[in-house]
Amino acid sequence: MKNFTTTLACLTSLLLTGCYAGSQFTIEASHLDQPVSLSSTIHNNKLEVLKAGEYEEIGRFSVSFSGWSLGSPLSPNPKRDISDVLNQIVKEKGGNGITHLTIQAANNPVNFVSMVLKGVSWFGVVLGSAILLSSNPNKTVPIEMIAVSAAGILFLPTVGDFTVEGMVVKIKQPEAWK
């Protein structure tokens, strides 16, 4: 019976491990000083659409950062405001806008570690529950095992690596921009 319970716990945790370790991040910009376009076009002061070649391209930039999350349903959706970073880049390069803004997302190796540890935690929850429901008189150990394992499932961190790239540009009517 004990072997059967252990085998069942192993198989269940194996399947549950197949879920995932991951999380969602929101990247926003609430106080940009200059226009930042994700496409290759941007407006001038007459609200005419300028295509690539109709504005001066000063130089490309690339900014990388990581976002940490608990990766569980209890975790709030982490937000990252990159306004200050983009404002600083435009200021340093002497431009008055950004075009071709691109976002790149990647898994961090921490997520693979969390995925394994979450599998171990699921195993702890299943095994602890099996012992708790059995005729074992000692209930303290399985309760502790379930509590620690559940904490692992809920609070193991996940990390997303992000890179924001773009082109700092100079519009031909700079007096029109803020």
Binding site: A21, G22, S23, F25, I27, E28, N107, S114
Partner: peptide, 8 residues
């Protein structure tokens, strides 16, 4: 922009 990363 919303980004989701998953390892599984």
């Amino acid at each position: 922009i919303r980004a989701r990363v998953e390892a599984y």
